[in-house]
Design a binder for these strands. Structure first.
Lengths: 219, 219
DNA sequence: AGAAACATACCAACCGGTCGGTTTTTATAT
DNA sequence: ATATAAAAACCGACCGGTTGGTATGTTTCT
């Protein structure tokens, strides 16, 4: 009996995660390492991520790796910080920044997730959540890094909610920070459950309850 | 610079996870292995869990381990299945089974979690969630096992909601299964976020939104 | 020429798992 | 109750494989 899951094809990199071709050769290998590292860590987690595999995928060698990064930690943090910021900026920060009706915009964002439009493989889950769960209890540096990412994420949602309150689209008694925390947590929870059940109908049902809650915030 | 987190003392085993003294010596070593394995896996995750450490903690040897279990997988599944079922039965199934007012009971259960009364270290998170996140994408056997645990969990909540509908404490138009899924997912999400932020005030704020949502289900 | 960028052979530590041998328990016969 | 043989339970040295990291040498760019 094998423990291997049915073959999972490598997820396509969504276009906004693609980088423009860098000029110098050194920078090119650096980017190749970052990209391969992110993919490997996303697929296997940080601890199980193999440097040899990263080197194979990126086409680099150990010498290049340890020339650009001090150790596995530094490589991982660089790769993740980069990818996380791009993803959140493109899918959350920018949409939220452009509206005074955050409830409607949050619904859109969730819908895009459920519909699989964001290039996040539901079987693999949200990489931010994955890393949080794996590394927070055992590595303080990772925990602080991820805690910062989550705080920034909540901050952008809270800002949008505050603007909604000012614009009269959101109830005035809403605790923006608390609701932002709840929204992020729920989002992570649903994507986590999906990873295990692989039952898309569950995601749709959850989204329904999710929307019920969000509508409840309207002025 | 060290990546180690500040020292985390071993969590106390909540009493309902303690086992009565088994009679035979063989059964005693089996239980010692299960207990040590659960603790080690809870602390480090399955892949990072070290058999040598499990043996040291349990006071057993490799020979004993591989006499009782075919391999690491079997040991892990046995240890986790056992612990999960006890935990859920004591903290969720039994309380929910004894009421026709599931909303009030769910509030109580959440409150107990937030207050740390259940012996779950918020820094380490919910073990079911931890294992789900780590193993689901890379091991089909684990995924199916965890998927079953989650389904059972949702099932007990859905049953309680249905009883609430019949008893008139829950709105008749509530989709019990969908809401149960949402409740479990949100619960996992909050406990996951707490693991990274370590900010208890966030848990309280999330609980507030959580309760808002739950109250919204009342008839 | 000198520095930055890379390549490769190598290392100790650890991993899960195996296997031949020893001890303890159990079943049976007396 | 005791002897004994078979089976279950346990022990621990050992194995091949992988890991992250290093040291030394070579190529490429400025």
């Amino acid at each position: 009996m094998s423990h291997d899951p049915p073959h999972i094809p490598l997820p396509e990199f969504p276009p906004y995660l693609k980088r423009e071709r860098p000029a110098s050769r050194a920078e090119r290998t650096r980017q190749a390492l970052l990209e391969a590292a992110f993919l490997e860590i996303y697929l296997k987690g940080f601890r199980a991520a193999s440097l040899s595999d990263i080197l194979e995928v990126s086409g680099c060698t150990k010498g290049a790796l340890y020339h650009h990064f001090t150790d596995k930690h530094a490589l991982g943090l660089a790769a993740l910080g980069d990818a996380f910021h791009r993803f959140l900026d493109h899918n959350w920060y920018q949409p939220l920044a452009g509206t005074d009706d955050p409830v409607t915009e949050l619904r859109r964002i969730i819908e895009r997730h459920v519909n699989g439009e964001l290039g996040v493989d539901p079987r693999l889950g949200c990489p931010i959540n994955n890393l949080s769960q794996e590394m927070s209890p055992i590595d303080e540096e990772f925990r602080l890094f991820l805690s910062g990412v989550l705080a920034e994420w909540r901050g952008h949602i809270a800002d949008a909610l505050e603007r909604g309150k000012a614009a009269g689209t959101v109830r005035a008694d809403v605790d923006a920070e608390g609701v932002a925390a709840y929204i992020v947590a729920t989002h992570q929870g649903v994507s986590g459950m999906l990873k295990t059940t692989r039952d898309i109908s569950l995601a749709e049902k959850c989204a329904h309850s999710y929307f019920d809650y969000l509508e409840h915030l309207r002025a």
